[in-house]
Amino acid sequence: MGEQPNPAVELAIETRGLTKRFGHQTAVNAVDLAVPRGSVFGFLGPNGSGKTTTIRLALGLAAATSGQVSVLGQTMPGRLKDVLPRVGALVEGPGFYPFLSGAANLHRLDSADRYAPSATRRARVHRALDRVGLGHAAGKKVGAYSLGMKQRLGLANALLMPRELLVLDEPTNGLDPQGTREVRNLVRSLAAEGTTVFVSSHLLAEVEQMCSHIAVMSVGSLVAQGTLDELRRAGESRVRVRTPDIAAALRVLAALGLAPEQTEPPGRAGGDGNDDSHDDGVVSAPLAPDSRPAEAIVAALVAGGVRVRGFTVERASLEDRFVALTGEGFDIAQ
């Protein structure tokens, strides 16, 4: 599903038929992901839909059962040693030594990187900690950090070196609203510097606010992929007519080739204090993209003797779109 990736666009992450099975369970099923360079790519899906497994496969932590992954133009995991130094990652929550301080943890991880110059290590650790707002807690033991602070430390780790690609798995998990906001700003500023940011999340609102592209996973499969606008447009629109003449409205809309239904019985849609509206009901119908313009529908209704007291065209929210794609189990509210 989704649009075909344009071969002219350079891809930061590309998977073809990526599949991972654990025993009989297929965690990732034939995923064709195309993450353009320079994008902020939201990777959405309910918990357990295969997002983290896909990320593990892309980072060479796990081997694919079949299919290929290439990151920054190089195949993984074959070219892992060339690719990973250019990638910063936060994978499935932070993992640090609780008995070391935040700064000491970053020092240790940085010294494991053969490409990271030790001369600038202290300064880079300091800068990364400042960037995620942990400057004051740098000397504190990680065991004493809150979940949000650990999450920030995980982000700082991804920012130790200048990266071409950042893979952030649920970066705002455990963060307070201010922290979430800071992460959004951080992602925007990184994207402005030209870094491709791949963010997995089950938080729709968050992704909607910072991403230029979106892919949606459901039960191991990729069900949609494209720019934010493309996905919004793909959702269906509905007309809603508020009127006391339910039967007439249904008849007129059906005559226009729509499939109307009564969404609210008479007397339920009122309540704005207007005496006229106490007997209103609502009739609504899905609107195909190629159907006649809204004003023509109003005209037909009025001509059909329907007392139109309210008329709206509702564009489906991204949320509706995702529920449609992934089923009701999607934990958007979290």
Binding site: L59, P98, D113
Partner: peptide
């Protein structure tokens, strides 16, 4: 167990 293994490998430590 600490979750540090994946970060060491992603560095990549080899």
């Amino acid at each position: 167990n600490l979750g540090t293994l994946r970060y060491l490998l992603v560095v990549p430590a080899g």
